[in-house]
Amino acid sequence: MTKKIVYYTGCFADYYGPDIGKSFVEVMEKNGFEVIVPDTKCCGMPQMANSNLKGARKNFEFNTRVLAKAASPGYDILSTCPSCNMMLRREGLPFFDSEEARFVASRVYDACEYLLRLHGEGKFNMDFGSMPIRVFYHNPCHLRVQNLTAAVDLMKLIPDLDVVKVNLNCCGMGGSYGMKKQNYDRSKEIAQKIWDEVKAAHVDVVATDCGGCGLQVQAGTGAKIMHPLMVLNQAYKAFKAREAA
């Protein structure tokens, strides 16, 4: 393999949703990339949200230093978490500007955004097996505000998969915001619309790129939650199984 990519895991894909990280590696390998995973820290957004500027700076500067070094041969940096992506790409810069931070910001992409770009260039591996499932897609705010809904276009490439509904509303979670006692009720009120839509859609899977959104949707619906990369990876595996058979 000659092409390389740097993966910024973020906390969720590392500690709570390792299947997201695994799927990312396998999907990228299917597309001919070797994945480099440098040792990084939390992106700093939770520290910002909890007014800890010092802690956010420490993490952000550490990450941008490490990522800039890893990407220095000209590699792009991908993330699977919308909030980490926003932090590295634009939110951190006004507070912790540096040459490294700007370099990293210019190289960071959302994983699905990147894969869709490959598809546009005719370089995306389409060896998908059939996945006859109904999917509800929830677009997290931190992708929504970057006008990124690439996951939908990618999932639609999977044979027999039906994206029955795309939701663009806020789920009210906002990282730890919706977990806090003072915000909990408000957060649930905001989520109610999505919960109702998920229940009405009668789907097999709710796909969303954000771990926090996934927890919120699951809390109100009990739905099976998958990151879009996990869906793509399953489709690749379905193809492999079909070939083996």
Binding site: A13, Y15, K22, K180, K181, Y184
Partner: peptide, 29 residues
């Protein structure tokens, strides 16, 4: 937890896993 961290008692917390993504990666996948 609600008293000491402010996390609402009914929050849907994520499950911890012993085998993180990095463990998986470093442990030969």
């Amino acid at each position: 937890m609600q008293v000491f961290t402010g996390v609402h008692r009914n929050s849907n917390l994520p499950a911890f896993t012993r085998k993180t993504f990095r463990h998986w990666l470093k442990g030969g996948r």
